[in-house]
Nucleic acid binder design. Structure first.
Length: 415
DNA sequence: TCTGGGGTCCTAGGACCC
DNA sequence: TCTGGGGTCCTAGGACCC
């Protein structure tokens, strides 16, 4: 038993790629190395904001979400590139492959960061040795710097990886908290954004230490259940586990886009809506899921954003269906003011495979209800026209689907 | 004459049911 | 001629993260 691994407790890594998009570009084109580089949206349009920038650019004050014109003002020699997501996805999957060689307990959280539970990796060496190996492999084989946090849980590992960048390795043990974590201002804590920080400051809670010492009832009153959780994390308590399957049960799929200019033009609006419906539909199909809830997002001229959603009686995946529902939400709720952005999100996702199983003939027959029948009728009517509907209405027992009806319905899902 | 696009989780009120 | 309390579902909005 190595002295590096606790008998009770875990060893968790948080691996965080530094300045990821910019690093990938520099690895791909070495001429960019050491230069101030920003990855940004289309500079011709207002989407021109900085997505990521190299450390050289950051040194000049360039920050993420900064409009491009401002970044250029701060750093005139800034090199600007459009994002190349395919390149980033490839680099990301290479990186996660390396992590998976160490342990199957890897949880990707985003394209450029993930957690690992290396509690049972004693045979591979000390945590520090493993971290160094990972870091140098990613640096030499992919040309990308990363920072690694080592701690007894996910929250502390996340905080640790942030403490030394780029190419840092930070160990954060419970006994280190008073020196390394608690002196930090609360707004640097993962999970505390500007709104929460503001509320905490009003309570005179300015550092993480203040948060640890605060009255939990006061925190709960001001922040709800989150108040207690934040305090626990500040104390070094985080029961969440490294879950390699977490990425597979996504809960929504959506696309949104800012228009080139604010508009009230029906043509442009419906064109964008169709484009979004097409994208969402393609992604649903690629992931082999169907959804039962649709949400429309409208951002207005003043950036005020509303969402309007509807739970549906049918499962959706087709572009035309998604478009239809999105358009009806728009018709119902748009006040006619100039629109800046539109978004369509499909929620309440179900695995298509499981739906097919649920619709297994036997189950279907046993559970057939009028409501289900009507849903199915609607679906068929939409697909094949009113003929089907008539056929149904003429059937003897309206609560029981005819055999041919069942077959049509199931075929529809099985294809 | 600023602020993209992809998500997750939580809260809160009203409807509805028992 | 009065009206509790718990639970779930639906919808809208907000906070936060990368």
């Amino acid at each position: 038993m190595s002295k590096w691994y606790p008998k009770n407790g875990k060893v968790i890594f948080h691996v965080d790629m530094n300045s990821f998009y910019a690093s990938v570009e520099a690895a791909h084109n070495p001429a960019l190395k050491g230069k101030p580089l920003a990855i940004a949206g289309n500079p011709e349009e207002r989407r021109g904001i900085v997505v990521t920038s190299s450390y050289e650019a950051r040194a000049k004050g360039v920050k993420t979400t900064m409009p491009l014109w401002e970044a250029k003002r701060l750093c005139p020699e800034l090199i600007v590139m459009r994002p190349n997501f395919e390149r980033y996805r490839n680099a990301s999957s290479e990186m996660f492959k390396m992590l998976a060689e160490i342990t199957p307990y890897v949880q990707p959280v985003s394209i450029d960061e993930g957690y690992m539970d290396i509690s049972s990796c004693e045979s591979l060496g000390s945590p520090l040795e493993i971290a160094k190996t990972i870091q140098s492999r990613i640096a030499t084989e992919l040309g990308i710097p990363c920072s690694i946090g080592i701690a007894p849980n996910k929250f502390l590992a996340k905080m640790a990886s942030d403490m030394k960048k780029p190419m840092g390795i930070t160990v954060l043990r419970l006994r280190d908290l008073s020196d390394k974590l608690w002196p930090l201002p609360v707004e640097e804590m993962y999970g505390i954004g500007s709104k929460t920080a503001e509320k905490l400051y009003k309570l005179d809670i300015k550092t993480i230490k203040d948060l640890v010492e605060a009255d939990v009832y006061v925190l709960k009153r001001v922040l709800g259940i989150n108040g207690e959780r934040l305090q626990n994390r500040a104390k070094g308590i985080d029961p969440s586990i490294v879950d390699p399957d977490a990425i597979y049960d996504f809960k929504s799929i959506g696309n949104s886009e800012t228009l080139p200019e604010d508009t009230v033009n029906d043509q442009e609006i419906s064109q964008l809506l169709r484009k979004l419906a097409r994208k969402v539909s393609a992604r649903l199909k690629r992931k082999k899921v169907v959804g039962q809830h649709i949400q429309l997002t409208i951002r207005f001229h003043d950036r005020k954003t509303i969402t309007r959603s509807k739970k549906l009686v049918e499962l959706i995946e087709e572009e035309t269906t998604i478009f239809k529902y999105a358009l009806s939400l728009l018709d119902e709720h748009w006040n006619g003011k100039p629109i800046r952005l539109l978004g369509i999100t499909v929620q309440d996702l179900h695995d298509k495979q499981e739906i097919v199983q649920q619709l297994d003939l036997f189950t279907y027959e046993k559970e057939a209800s009028k409501e289900k029948l009507y849903q199915a009728m609607e679906k068929l009517t939409e697909k094949y026209g009113t003929d089907t509907f008539t056929k149904m209405n003429n059937s003897e027992d309206k609560t029981q689907p005819s055999t041919s009806f069942q077959k049509d319905y199931l075929d529809d899902y099985k294809k």
